[in-house]
């Protein structure tokens, strides 16, 4: 009888502590929330102009897990939108943490022109940067976003069948979907 009570007590105490902690964090979370800024987009791209926020935390979960933190556009001195930028946070995958990627699209040609990692997934001990330019910086590869599935069967970026790359790939797949749905398909309507 006594043993049962202690087990019950253990469970109760743990539950109570967990609930209190959870409530505390739930209360603090909105208070301490930091909205993403265009700095992430502006700092990683060289083109001239001014970035402005298009959409924040787009609830776009159609991809393989993750979130479009911020969608922004780059307006040049003449007031023409030259580029669109997306910061995409992909979900963590097994031993690797979530990563944040910035993708840049040319507004005229609907082409992906550049991709940079902003936050590495480091919990697994590996960084995406460690895979070199291939996975980390999507350079010299111009891909036109002609459909929302353009990256689904894409072999790039990849450096092997690693889980890291799965997370990075997700960023590209999600970026293409978002961009196609919002700017290409949406713009044609």
């Amino acid at each position: 009888m006594a043993k049962k009570e202690t087990t019950l007590r253990c469970v109760t105490v743990l539950t109570v502590i967990a609930v209190i902690c959870g409530v505390l964090l739930a209360v603090l979370n909105p208070l301490l929330y930091v909205p993403p800024t265009v700095d992430d987009l502006a700092n990683n791209f060289t083109a001239e102009g001014e970035w402005s926020i298009e959409e924040l935390n787009a609830d776009f979960e159609k991809g393989n897990g993750g979130k479009v933190l911020l969608a922004g556009k780059l307006t040049n001195a003449e007031g023409v939108v030259t580029h669109y930028g997306l910061t995409i946070k992909t979900n963590s995958d097994a031993q690797l943490g979530e990563c944040t990627y910035a993708l840049y699209f040319d507004a005229q040609t609907d082409t992906l022109v550049e991709a940079k990692y902003i936050v590495d997934g480091t919990t697994g001990g590996k960084t995406y940067a460690a895979y070199g330019d291939k996975g980390a910086n999507f350079e010299d590869y111009l891909v036109q976003i002609t459909s929302e599935n353009v990256f689904d069967s894409y072999t790039y970026p990849q450096t092997g069948a690693t889980k890291t790359l799965k997370a990075v790939n997700n960023a590209f797949i999600m970026g293409a979907r978002y961009y196609y749905n919002v700017y290409v398909a949406g713009g044609n309507e």
């Binding site: 202690t6 007590r9 253990c10 105490v13 743990l14 502590i17």
Partner: peptide, 10 residues
């Protein structure tokens, strides 16, 4: 209050 059995998780 914390039982010693579950002290580490707590």
């Amino acid at each position: 209050i914390i039982p010693s059995k579950v002290r580490i998780p707590a």
